[in-house]
Design a binder for these strands. Structure first.
Ligand SMILES: [Mn+2]
Ligand SMILES: [Mn+2]
Ligand SMILES: [Zn+2]
Ligand SMILES: [Zn+2]
Lengths: 132, 132
DNA sequence: CACGGATTTAGACTACTTCTAAACCTGGAG
DNA sequence: CTCCAGGTTTAGAAGTAGTCTAAATCCGTG
């Protein structure tokens, strides 16, 4: 949010107008956008922005830990600005993905899986969001 | 496994040689194959089998609850013959997906998510399988 | 045998992602 | 100031997964 320019610089990503437009959008939303959604939104700030630059930038942001690609929706990768551990709820009616705080759920037993070295895990829930 | 011909018939799927070849492979493996992997393997039994028939058959098997499509690997849907609730472990080195029994883990707190009507959930773990 | 519905097929088509090679900055060396 | 080199951006081609279409095939019944 704060100073995206400084954030990129201190992460070792040279801040260009294109990268700033991509980063400003993807780091400022909780909507788990696809690359094409990032392209559309970032073009409002930087109209010449190309698809290749969006993919390049998202990959670079991911390598530097500023976003995390998620494989939750069929056929696309979505980009998550929320890089701390958390869970996800997918509304099957709308396709929207919601963050569920890590503390909201508790998973036990993963240490009993001696066959696997579990580096990371999350609970993926699917259903309908209640109209509230 | 047992009598795939009878299984399809009693599920209301007319058993054709193509569907039998697809079903015999996908229902007989625990490897979570992609559609293309099913095509390659089922062609050994039915060499004229087309890609369209594989997709049509997998969709039909899913509609009748005999397989369950899973969105776990980037870019592809994999088909899971194991239709009861269970969790998954993805080996990031090989891409292989392993089933983790429902009883191996326990998740609590999902009922506290009042905003969401959770129809289904699973834990998705990633890491390395231990060489054993 | 002829008919009609269900099934299968090849290939066209779409969507998402990666690759390529040329164009474009931009900041220092001369 | 001009030239150059690295890094960056770009359009479009290429690759890959999945869907659609329309013609051919199959098969049970009359
Ligand atoms: Mn399985
Ligand atoms: Mn794809
Ligand atoms: Zn998230
Ligand atoms: Zn499974």
């Amino acid at each position: 949010m704060a100073d995206i320019y400084e954030l990129l610089r201190s992460a070792g990503v040279q801040p260009t107008p294109q990268r700033l437009a991509v980063a400003r959008y993807v780091l400022g939303t909780t909507s788990h956008p696809t690359a094409d959604e990032v392209l559309a939104k970032a073009r409002r700030e930087c109209p010449t922005l190309s698809r290749a630059t969006v993919y390049n930038t998202l990959t670079r942001l991911a390598e530097h830990g500023l976003v995390r690609p998620q494989t939750i929706r069929e056929g696309v990768v979505v980009f998550d600005a929320h890089t701390e551990r958390h869970h996800h709820f997918v509304d099957e009616a709308t396709g929207k993905i919601y963050d569920v705080p890590w503390e909201a759920l508790s998973v036990s037993g993963e240490s009993s899986l001696r066959e696997y070295d579990v580096r990371d895990y999350q609970v993926v829930m699917r259903g309908r969001r209640r109209k509230s």
